[in-house]
């Protein structure tokens, strides 16, 4: 074949190396090169992945479907909106994404006068796709563990066009001892569906990021939801026991991470 003839021995052995590397990671290793540059096929693959991620950023949050799925595992839910009126405003105004729309604040306040151990917020963040795919499997794994441990759980609050800190306000309104915020992470090229979970002890507006613990990259092919739920359970238990979260609460359960590939 003319194509084979055109390939030098040197190029062939480089290609063999590339095959060995690509088997070991999803990172874009072993792409080969034309001169200093990426080959045409790789340039186009990259452009396609970028296009898909761009589309995930602008996808609509389907709270209704999520609400039904959570009802099936025995979780009540309530929908709310952040103060950001639309997606474009949301992208440029993080301050609005961090707080509730006025109308929803009063509504949430009336829901849970008694207080709970754990408040749960599900926010679209930067990828509604991530929430659609991973929020239910994560909560389905976490909920039995929380209940077995005797923790009380409030209704799940869905918040559209929201950022992590919206959980501080909601956690305070629900009188939760700690709040878990499940949120769509920035879509990457190889993962437009990555979910993050943020834990904040004693949620109240004004908490800083150093006071939170984060479990990131929750998705099939990353940290799978059941394993993420086990990590979250450990963090929840320790946070409530030590009454703190953030930098001061370093995760020490090494074995869980070591088994990430199996989970």
């Amino acid at each position: 074949m003319a194509k084979d003839l055109a390939m030098t021995d040197a190029a062939r052995v480089s290609r063999e190396t590339n095959t060995v590397l690509t088997a070991l990671t999803d990172a874009r290793v072993g792409l080969g090169r034309v001169g200093a540059s990426m080959p045409t096929a790789e340039v186009l693959k990259f452009a396609y992945a970028h296009a898909r991620a761009r589309d995930a950023v602008h996808a609509d949050f389907d709270a209704d479907a999520l609400g039904e799925a959570l009802a099936a595992i025995g979780l009540e839910s309530v929908s709310a909106r952040s103060a950001a009126p639309d997606r474009m405003t949301y992208l440029r105004r993080p301050d609005l994404g961090r707080r509730l729309a006025d109308a929803d604040r009063a509504r949430l306040d009336a829901l849970q006068a008694e207080g709970v151990d754990i408040g749960i917020v599900v926010a679209d963040g930067l990828s509604a796709t991530a929430v659609h795919v991973n929020a239910v499997p994560f909560l389905a794994a976490l909920l039995p563990m929380l209940r077995n441990a005797g923790f009380t759980v409030g209704p799940v609050a869905f918040v559209q066009n929201a950022r992590v800190a919206v959980g501080d306000e909601i956690g305070a309104l629900l009188r939760a001892r700690l709040v878990l915020v499940l949120i769509g992470e920035r879509p990457g090229l190889s993962s437009a569906d990555s979910l993050g979970v943020y834990l904040t002890h004693g949620p109240v507006p004004g908490r800083s990021d150093a006071e939170r613990n984060c479990i990131s990259n929750i998705r099939e092919g990353g940290l799978v939801p059941p394993l993420a739920a086990r990590k979250a359970m450990w963090l929840v238990s320790e946070s409530l026991r030590r009454q703190l979260s953030g930098v001061a609460l370093k995760e020490e359960e090494a074995t869980l991470i070591g088994t990430a590939a199996e989970g």
Partner: peptide, 19 residues
């Protein structure tokens, strides 16, 4: 690798870019 950080989910410069 390939300008695509699969952990931090953003695009930086690639091994090719520096070449």
């Amino acid at each position: 690798p390939g300008a695509d950080d699969i952990m931090l989910n953003y695009q930086s410069t690639s091994f090719h870019d520096q070449l």
